[in-house]
C-alpha cells in the first residue's frame, strides 16, 4: 500500500482546494500550457437547480468558467439562441473534443418521451437520445446532482417517469457528483482537475475523493454532543440532531468544512438535520427527513 492511500483525506482536501486548482488552471491557460476545452451542460428531468447552483459559485465564478476555463457551448437556461439553431449549436460539438456535464435524470418511460429537450431535423429529441448520442463520444461525462447520478427526486417512488441516472444509459465511465443541488465547487474543481491533470481520483461509485471521502458525521462541529449523548429535541436546538433523523452519519461529503453560498452556512449550522442529499438513495432511502425521535420504541 502506498503512503498516499493512507493519507488523511481531510489533509488532502485542504491541499487541493477548489480555489488552488482553479488558480493553477488560470496560470497555465495564461502561459499557453493549457487549452480551453468545449463544455456542454445538458439539463434533463429535474428542477434545473444545478445550473442555478453553478451561478451561485464564486472564485471561480460562472464568468470565469465561460471566459477563462472553457468554451461553454450550450445550456438550456442560458443559451442566447433558441429552437433549431440552439440544437445545432448543441450538436456542433460532435466530432470535436468536449466535456459533457449533465444535470437531471433520464426519463425512460414511453421511450423517453416524458422529457423532450428540443427538436432536431423536425423530430422531437428526447433526453434519452441526447444523452446516448452526446454521452458516448464525450471526452468526459460528469453527472451533476442527485437526479443525474442516481435518479434522485425525479426517480422517487413510484418513479412515474421511470427515471434513471446517466450511468444507466452509457457504457462508459461517468464521474458522479451527487448532491441536491451539487455545490458549485464540487463541479468547478472536478472540471479544473480534468483540465489540469485528467480524471480525478474516484471512489468505487465514481465520486471524486476530494469531496466525497469523509462522512459528515466525522467532521461535524456537533460531534462532541453526539459523543456525550446530548441530543436535540426539536429543530433550532444547538446540539446533535441524530435523534431528529440527521443523515450525517451515512452521508459522505464535505459540507461541514466547505459550507454553502459564499461559505456562509450549511444545513446543520441552520439547526436542521442533514437530509442526505449527497448520498446515493436520496430521497427514498434518506426519509423521513424530520422525525422527533428516531430512537423511540416501535409499537407493534
Amino acid at each position: 500500500m502506498s503512503n498516499e492511500s493512507i493519507m488523511c483525506p481531510e489533509y488532502k482536501a485542504r491541499l487541493n482546494t477548489a480555489t488552488s486548482l482553479v488558480e493553477t488552471v488560470k496560470m497555465q491557460l495564461r502561459q499557453g500550457v493549457l487549452r480551453k476545452r468545449n463544455l456542454v451542460w445538458l439539463e434533463l428531468t429535474g428542477c434545473s437547480g444545478n445550473i442555478i447552483s453553478l451561478l451561485d459559485g464564486s472564485n471561480p465564478d460562472f464568468k470565469y468558467l465561460i471566459s477563462e476555463m472553457t468554451h461553454f457551448i450550450y445550456n438550456n437556461s442560458l443559451s442566447a439562441s433558441e429552437g433549431q439553431n440552439a440544437m445545432e449549436q448543441l450538436f456542433s460539438v460532435l466530432g470535436s473534443d468536449y466535456i459533457l456535464a449533465v444535470e437531471g435524470a433520464v426519463a425512460t418511460k414511453n421511450n423517453g418521451l416524458y422529457n423532450i429537450i428540443g427538436r432536431l431535423n423536425d423530430k422531437p429529441l428526447t433526453a434519452m437520445e441526447a444523452v446516448k448520442s452526446l454521452g458516448e463520444k464525450a471526452a468526459f461525462v460528469i453527472a451533476i446532482g442527485a437526479c443525474a447520478t442516481h435518479g434522485g427526486v425525479s426517480a422517487a417512488r413510484p418513479n412515474p417517469a421511470e427515471c434513471v441516472g446517466v450511468q444507466s444509459l452509457l457504457n462508459r465511465k461517468v464521474i458522479n457528483l451527487p448532491g441536491c443541488p451539487c455545490h458549485p465547487d464540487w463541479f468547478m474543481a472536478t472540471l479544473a482537475h480534468i483540465l489540469l491533470y485528467g480524471e480525478p481520483e474516484l471512489d468505487i461509485r465514481n465520486r471524486p475523493l476530494l469531496f466525497y471521502s469523509t462522512l459528515i458525521h466525522d467532521r461535524c462541529p456537533r460531534r462532541s454532543y453526539f459523543d456525550k449523548g446530548i441530543f436535540a429535541e426539536k429543530l433550532g436546538d444547538k446540539t446533535c440532531m441524530f435523534k431528529l433523523g440527521c443523515r450525517g452519519p451515512v452521508t459522505r461529503i464535505d459540507c461541514p468544512i466547505r459550507q454553502w453560498n459564499q461559505y456562509v452556512n450549511w444545513p446543520i449550522e441552520d439547526d436542521t438535520p442533514c437530509i442526505g442529499c449527497a448520498q446515493f438513495g436520496f430521497p427514498d432511502a434518506m426519509e423521513p427527513f424530520i422525525s422527533y425521535n428516531t430512537t423511540r420504541e416501535v409499537k407493534r
Partner: peptide
C-alpha cells in the same frame, strides 16, 4: 442567494 443561506442554510433547496 447568499442572503437566503444566512438564515436558510443553503440555496437552492
Amino acid at each position: 442567494h447568499e442572503m437566503l443561506a444566512v438564515l436558510g442554510g443553503k440555496a437552492p433547496h
